[in-house]
Structures are given as structure tokens and as C-alpha cells.
Amino acid sequence: MRLELQDLTVRRGTRVTVDRASLSAGPGEFIGLIGPNGAGKTSLMRAALGLIAASGSSSLTALPPARRALAAAWLPQTREAAWPVTAEALIRLGRIPHARPDADPAHIEAAMARMGITHLRARPVTELSGGEQARVLIARALAQDTPILMADEPIAGLDPAHQIGAMATFRTLADEGRLVIASLHDLGLAARHCTRLVLMDQGRIAADGPPAKVLTPALLAQVFGVQGYFAETPEGPVFQPLRLTAP
């Protein structure tokens, strides 16, 4: 399933948070949505999912809500788990859009195995650490088993091992034929794991392409105000931000 955004525009009062964003993405891609705070990354994804009003078109909002929930899973940035339900029960919520939510426990087991949280299954989520909660919530989105997965800063607050683990999982999902879009602030991990980067700046899509084409000195200075080191190594692309550009 492809995601097509055409001139998507979001207005919040008089401010334009997303400005005529167009994007076409398909199976097999792991897109890192990068940009400074307030660039419009979250708004772009929420508008694409039809969670906020927007002008322009999104191939997802064209679907009725029940079909949309089978097409795309959404992992919000705020990690909410209101009640002390067990991790397994929380992950099972991802099956709600499906005709028979309890019919296929395999998806729940697979999601838990992918995120390495099978040992937490019987623990109340409210008693887990922040990082463990984050992984349980990612597993919930995986259990929804949709061709498209959108995640808002899914790896923020995870330890390095689990950051790499989550990024590798997203890449595996893409390699299996899904489309994964995640907003990220760690440009190094984005460069290394994503197949494509979309750089947003002040509501607009400023650059779109493979990591080497997006993380250029000129764009980094212009959008983030930083200088960095980028190299293609035998290990894959490596990026490290180094210093602020002179004001």
C-alpha cells in the first residue's frame, strides 16, 4: 500500500504548521522524518492520518476510519497508558480494528518477541519503566499489523541498545514490505537505518531523498544550524553532528 500526500496544509489559528507538503512513499521504505522542533513533523503525520483537519489530500483520509485503522498504525509521542492493565492486554488493543480481535494471538506474540518484552507480558504497564513502556507501546502498534506504520519520536528516551534494536526492527518491517515513517531527532541513527530521509523546516518539506543527499552541509547549516561529519563506511552511512554554525 502506498501513501500519497498532495499539498497537505495544516493551519492552527493563523499559523501554518504544515505548508503544502507533498510526499509519495511505498512498501519497503523506512522514512526518517527529521527537522528542528516545531518544523511540523507531528502535524504532517497526524494530518496524513486524518487526526487533525487539513486541506490538500492524503490517500489515508480518503479511506473510511475503520479501513484506515487496518491500513495505518499510529504511535503518538505522548506515551499514554491510563490503567494498570497488563502489557499483554495493552498490546492486544492493537487488534481492535480487526474483525475478531482475539482470533489470532500470533500477532501479539510476534510483536512482543520483536520488541523483546515477552518477559514483561504479565506486568501492569503502569509499573514499567519509561523505556519499557515505550517498547510495549511500539509492540501495540506492531500488533495492529498494518501495511503502514507511523511513529512520533518512537525511540526518544530509550537506552542505546533498545534505540538500535527499535530502529533495526523498523528497518526489518520495511524490508518485509511495509512502509514505516518515524519522526526522529537522532540524525546518526536516522542516517544509518532509514532508507530515505524527509527534512522539514517551518512546515515545508525542505529536502527528500537518501540520507547522503539530505544530510548535506548546506541543508544542515540552513535548517538545523549545525555542522556535522558524514561518511559512507563499510558499516553503512555514519553521521555525527559536531558544532553549531557561527551565528
Binding site: R46, L49, L51, A66, A69, L70, W74, P76
Partner: peptide, 8 residues
């Protein structure tokens, strides 16, 4: 937000 994305 997540509930809405689950089709609620």
C-alpha cells in the same frame, strides 16, 4: 489520538 487511529 491512538484510539482515533484504531478506528474509534
Amino acid at each position: 489520538d491512538a484510539a482515533a487511529s484504531l478506528g474509534i
